[in-house]
C-alpha cells in the first residue's frame, strides 16, 4: 500500500515517466482489444485496394495486398509485445533460478555455470539470436525461444551476484543463528531481496526484446506471413518507402513509441524500487 502510494507520487513527480506509463497502458489495451478496435480483419486481402494512401476508410493506408495497415498494427501489438513479454519472463524465471542456485551452492557447480554464461555473453546478442532462430527454424515460437536464451546469461549473472551478497548479509547470518531452515532463508530473505533488481532488469529488457523480435521478423526468421508482426511488416514495407511512405512509417512509429515507453518506464521502475529512495 505504502509502496503503491509512493509509486504514484514519484511517477507524478516524474511527468516524463508518467506519460510513458500512459503510453504503455494504451499499448496493452490496444493489444487486448485489437479485435474491437480494428476496422478490418488483419488478414483480409483486397487486390483492388492495394497501396491506398491514408484516408477516412483506411487510417494508415493499405499494403501491397490491400490489407488495412491500421488493423495490422493493432494485431501486431499482440504478437510483438506479447512474444517479447513471454520471452523475457521465461528467460528471467529460468535465469534467476539457475543463477541464485549457482550463487548459493558455489564450488564447481558455480564455476561450470558461470563459464557457460561467459560463452553465451561472448557472442553479440543479435548474432546469437539470429544463429539460434535460424538453427531452430523460422517461426515466431522459435524466435521467442532464441530471445529467451540470448537474455538468459544476464539474469543468471544478476541473480548469482545478488544471491551471493544476500547470503553473506548480516540478516541472513542472524536468521542462521535462529536455526531456521535453508528453505525459509531462500523464501523469506533471498527471493524478496533478489526480486527488485530482477524486475528492473525485466522492464529494461522488454523494449530490447521487441526490437529483437522485429529484427528477426524483418530478416524473415520470426513471424511468418500472413501473421501481422511489426518487423515482418517493415521488411516488406520498406520497399515502398519512396512512393508509399505510409506503409513502413506507421509501423516503424509503433515500434519506436513502444520501445521508447518501455525504456523510460524501466528507468523509472529502477529509481522507484531502490530501497534507498523515499523516506
Amino acid at each position: 500500500m505504502n509502496l503503491l502510494l509512493r509509486s504514484i507520487r514519484s511517477l507524478i513527480k516524474n511527468r516524463f515517466a508518467a506519460s510513458a506509463v500512459i503510453v504503455l497502458a494504451i499499448v496493452f489495451l490496444v493489444g487486448v482489444f485489437a479485435p474491437l478496435l480494428a476496422t478490418y480483419s488483419p488478414a483480409d486481402t483486397a487486390p483492388k485496394d492495394r497501396l491506398l494512401a491514408p484516408g477516412s476508410l483506411h487510417y494508415f493506408g493499405t499494403d501491397e495486398l490491400g490489407r488495412d495497415i491500421f488493423s495490422r498494427i493493432l494485431y501486431g501489438t499482440r504478437v510483438s509485445v506479447g512474444i517479447a513479454l513471454v520471452a523475457i519472463l521465461l528467460s528471467a524465471l529460468v535465469g534467476t533460478f539457475i543463477g541464485s542456485f549457482s550463487g548459493f551452492i558455489g564450488r564447481w557447480i558455480d564455476q561450470v555455470i558461470m563459464r557457460i554464461t561467459d560463452v553465451l555473453l561472448a557472442f553479440p546478442t543479435l548474432v546469437l539470436a539470429l544463429a539460434l532462430s535460424a538453427a531452430l527454424g523460422a517461426s515466431i515460437v522459435n524466435a521467442a525461444l532464441a530471445i529467451a536464451v540470448v537474455k538468459l546469461p544476464i539474469y543468471m549473472r544478476l541473480a548469482r551476484t545478488q544471491a551471493l551478497s544476500i547470503s553473506q548479509s548480516l540478516y541472513v547470518k542472524s536468521a542462521k543463528t535462529f536455526g531456521v531452515s535453508s528453505g525459509w532463508v531462500v523464501r523469506k530473505h533471498v527471493v524478496p531481496n533478489l526480486l527488485t533488481p530482477i524486475v528492473v532488469q525485466i522492464t529494461l529488457d522488454i523494449g530490447d526484446a521487441i526490437l529483437l523480435i522485429a529484427t528477426l521478423g524483418f530478416l524473415g526468421l520470426g513471424a511468418q506471413p500472413p501473421t501481422a508482426e511489426w518487423g515482418a511488416m517493415i521488411s516488406t514495407g520498406w520497399n515502398y518507402l519512396i512512393d508509399q511512405w505510409w506503409y513502413p512509417t506507421f509501423t516503424g512509429a509503433a515500434i519506436f513509441i513502444t520501445v521508447m515507453a518501455f525504456n523510460i518506464v524501466g528507468d523509472g521502475v529502477r529509481d522507484l524500487l531502490d530501497p534507498k529512495s523515499g523516506e
Binding site: 548479509s169 548480516l170 540478516y171 547470518k173 542472524s174 536468521a175 543463528t177 535462529f178 536455526g179 531456521v180 531452515s181 525459509w184 523469506k188 530473505h189 524478496p192 531481496n193 530501497p275
Partner: peptide
C-alpha cells in the same frame, strides 16, 4: 541469542518489524 553491531544490515529491509521480531520463533 545474539545482537550484532550494525542494525542497518542485521534487519532484512523487506520484512516488517513484526515479521523480524517473530522470526526466531520458527525453530
Amino acid at each position: 541469542q545474539i545482537v550484532f553491531q550494525d542494525p542497518k544490515s542485521s534487519l532484512d529491509p523487506r520484512m516488517s518489524v513484526r515479521e523480524i521480531i517473530e522470526e526466531p520463533l520458527r525453530s
